[in-house]
Amino acid sequence: MRADIRHITEYRYAEPAWDSFNEVRLSPEVSARQDLRSFHLAVRPEPSLVSTHRDYFGSLIHHVHVHEPHQVLRIEAQALVITRPLPGLETVPFSALDELRGEVTEFLVSSPRVPSGRWPEVFGVRAPQPHEDLSAFMVALTTQLHRQFTYHPGATSVSTTLEQFARDLRGVCQDYTHAMLGICRTLGIPARYVSGYLYSGGEMIGADATHAWVEVLIPGQGWVGFDPTNDMLAGEKHIKIGHGRDYPDVSPVRGTYYGGGGEASLNVEVRVYGDPPARQE
């Protein structure tokens, strides 16, 4: 599938700000399932410095420094991505994970936004038996959480804890993903947070901003994406930016500034245009 992406982040300040330093994670990754044909980052006012590096997890980060006084900071990213279909899931016993857990400890232990807890019990998820099919378990878990949670923008914020979400079960893709991560890691299933985009065509949830889903390590198949917000595997319509332990590892734009007269107002606009994948007969 071909996807043209336009992502605009705009900060407005009550008074002029200066020395604005921003860390931007908006460049889609290059992998076996997707090609990045082009990426362009435009910043207004003109930055005095733009540099790049890859973080611990391999995501490309742009560091943007705007030195001159400004009351509006606009960061626009444009990308052209080609995604490919993934093979179907294979039957894999849960016990097959035993040989892999030592290689991916960072995606099994607690993280700042996914603390240790009795998350399977909290969300009513039973632990699979060693002989059970891990792939089938993950598909069923994706469906269970999709039905159990209510998508409600505004019910939570980027600072909402997993404990708070567990009380109300209302939130957005970030909350769904943190909950699924907590369940998987508690059960010994390596799982990581994915940030990206979603080509919707008006039929899926979460296409009006950056989207989030879970990748689970399935022996013999690698990291496989599951999207509990839309009750589906992450396929051609999911465009990945990067992954980490939880949201702060892959937040799209974050930074600091001097001045500004208090907290800045934020507006984000995301548009994904594309040629949808052909229907499978």
Rank of each mutant, 00 (worst) to 15 (best):
Leu233Ile: 03
Ala207Tyr: 04
Glu90Ala: 14
Pro112Lys: 06
Ile82Asp: 15
Thr156Cys: 00
Asp246Pro: 02
Ser48Val: 12
Asp275Ala: 12
Ser111Lys: 10
Gly196Pro: 02
Cys184Phe: 06
Val214Ala: 10
Ala179Asp: 09
Gly222His: 11
Leu198Asn: 07
Arg167Met: 13
Glu263Tyr: 10
Val139Lys: 09
Ser20Trp: 00
Ser110Asn: 06
Asp231Trp: 00
Glu68Met: 12
Phe21Glu: 10
Phe149Gly: 06
Thr150Ala: 06
Asp55Val: 07
Ala166Leu: 06
Gly196His: 05
Glu121Thr: 12
Pro128Tyr: 12
Val81Gly: 07
Gln144Gly: 01
Asp35Tyr: 12
Thr9Tyr: 04
Glu103Trp: 08
Val122Ile: 15
Ala32Lys: 08
Asn267Tyr: 11
Tyr247Glu: 04
Ser20Ala: 14
Thr9Met: 03
Asp175Ala: 08
Tyr151Ser: 01
Gln144Pro: 00
Ala42Trp: 00
Arg74Asp: 02
Lys237Leu: 14
Gly201Lys: 09
Tyr258Gly: 10
Phe226Met: 07
Ser111Arg: 07
Val66Asp: 07
Pro228Glu: 09
Val64Arg: 05
Lys240Cys: 13
Tyr176Gln: 09
Arg2Ser: 06
Glu68Lys: 15
Leu233Cys: 01
Pro219Phe: 11
Val224Cys: 10
Gly242Glu: 01
Gly171Ile: 06
Tyr258Asn: 12
Val250Arg: 03
Val272Phe: 11
Pro47Glu: 02
Phe123Ile: 09
His152Lys: 12
Ala234Glu: 02
Gly206Asn: 04
Ile189Tyr: 01
Leu36Ile: 08
Ile5Tyr: 08
Tyr197Phe: 10
Leu80Ala: 15
His53Ala: 13
Asn267Val: 14
Leu41Ile: 03
Leu141Trp: 11
Pro153Val: 00
Gly201His: 05
Tyr258Cys: 10
Glu29Ile: 14
Asp168Trp: 04
Gln129Glu: 15
Tyr199Met: 13
Pro85Tyr: 05
Leu100Glu: 14
Leu187Met: 13
Gly102Leu: 04
Val194Gln: 02
Pro219Leu: 11
Glu269Gly: 09
Glu236Trp: 05
Thr143Glu: 14
Val92Pro: 02
Val122Leu: 05
Leu41Arg: 06
Asn230Arg: 12
His243Ser: 13
Thr150Gln: 09
Val92Gln: 02
Asp227Asn: 05
Leu49Arg: 15
Phe165Gln: 03
Glu29Pro: 00
Val158Lys: 00
Gly182Glu: 03
Gln174His: 14
Val104Arg: 11
Trp119Val: 03
Glu103Val: 08
Asp231Gln: 13
Cys173Asp: 07
Gly242Leu: 01
Ser51Met: 12
Asp175Asn: 04
Asp275Asn: 12
Ala278Met: 06
Asp168Leu: 11
